[in-house]
């Protein structure tokens, strides 16, 4: 099953490689991994999307907790949570596509953030599946380039991951 794991860790050089090294050494999957400092600059927050059986996920949680740089770990998928990913897509926008692309961006609540006479760059946020849906909806040849951040997650309501 797919799990979203949030990790608070010391903002130290090498902390990221400890986590990625752990995943590769033990053969765990990483679907995506995002990391950036938190409001407290000495700490980083990481969101890892992974999948595996319950046993594997339990080990992932324990092994992450065992890393000396890791302050806290929660499995967001164990409760209500929100997941968002940012995608930037550059699409061809010439001829009748120009109007079509604008409409698609509107339907998916995207924003056109850069315009030339031949292409648009569209910014979209949402769950991973929404972004997938956008890519499916526009024709393949129209897509010039995509870049995605991977998911960030946060618990709903008063579910807070803090020191």
């Amino acid at each position: 099953m797919r799990h979203i794991i949030s990790v608070l860790l010391e903002n130290e050089p090498g902390a990221l490689s400890r986590v990625s090294g752990l995943f590769s050494a033990r053969g765990y999957n990483i679907e995506s991994l995002t990391v950036a400092p938190t409001e407290d600059p000495t700490m980083s927050r990481m969101t890892i999307v992974t999948n595996g059986s319950d046993d594997v996920i339990e080990q992932i949680n324990k092994q992450l907790n065992k890393l000396v740089d890791v302050v806290k770990v929660i499995d967001l998928s164990e409760g209500e949570h929100i997941e968002r990913e940012l995608m930037l897509v550059k699409v061809r926008a010439v001829g009748k596509d120009r109007e079509e692309m604008k409409r698609m961006a509107d339907i998916f609540r995207g924003r056109i953030i850069d315009v030339t006479d031949r292409d648009y760059t569209i910014e979209l946020t949402g769950s991973g599946s929404k972004l997938d849906a956008f890519l499916k909806a526009v024709s393949r040849d129209a897509i010039l380039e995509t870049v995605r951040t991977g998911a960030s997650g946060i618990g709903r309501g008063d579910r807070v991951l803090k020191l």
Partner: peptide, 11 residues
Amino acid sequence: IDPSSISKRVR
């Protein structure tokens, strides 16, 4: 003492 040793190979 190590939680990750528990239920690693055997439930």
